[in-house]
Amino acid sequence: MVTSPRRRILNYAIRYVLLAIAAFLLVYPFLYMLSTSFKPRSLVLGDPTQLIPEDPTLDNYIQVLGVDNFLRYFLNSAAVAVVSTVLIVALSSMMAYAFSRLRFPGKRILFTLIIVGLTIPTMMLIIPQFLLARDLHLLNSLQGLVPFYVGTALGFNTFLLSGFFETIPKELDEAMLIDGAGPWRRYWSLALPLSKPALATCVIFAFLGTWDEFAWALTVLNDVEVRTLPIAIALFQGQHSTSWGLVFAASLLAIIPVLIVYIVFQRFFVAGLTSGAIKS
């Protein structure tokens, strides 16, 4: 019954209608940004129901790309984001593995401390963190951003990954134990390959978080040469007036790398090897 062709077509049709409605609602404001970014001199936001700009222009994009150092800010952000993402995924997957799969004294306390860290508003930590960065000579440099980006993201990603590692069937671990595999091998050749979707999620979030980070970068970076992209974009907002077309154009350009990372890594969202393994 379920597999009858008519039923299947109906099924698909319903899905597409629902998806299209959701897509429209979710993408609409984005389309508005896109449209405004092609409008000339937009110091005031225009009519949100009018999505096709009257005389579209690439001026905003040309002006954004023409800002001194724009490419440099882009590369600065990319370098920091890539290095931080690699470290975040490596360190948090190791921590998550230990928390969800290994027994050791102090596990509860350490895991609780991770959760506690998640609930503290980071904004209030900014002054103590600033003093720490100063004492460690990490102010005003791109390398100096990395330890702070990684350290602050570890809690979230560890928590997220340990939720996923827990769902790996215990039987698989036990089978490997019998084969004499140590924790390192079980982590590397069992937990990680089985958690590709979760790790991909981590990569996507970690990259987005570090690529977009603004408050800390603004606080510790002074020299123009070491600035990151979000600071450059914020600088398009004026005290009395803002060229929205410019801000939106710059924001849209900044989204591209994040989307590339997303598109590449969402491919791992396919059923892992667990399905075959559990059955037996």
Binding site: M95, A98, L102, P147, L154, G155
Partner: peptide, 20 residues
């Protein structure tokens, strides 16, 4: 196992403790 667990946890946790 506990020793291995600390090797897994500590590199990240020390950094986390320091900056958070």
């Amino acid at each position: 196992e506990a020793l291995a667990a600390y090797a897994f946890v500590l590199p990240g946790f020390i950094l986390y403790a320091l900056v958070m």
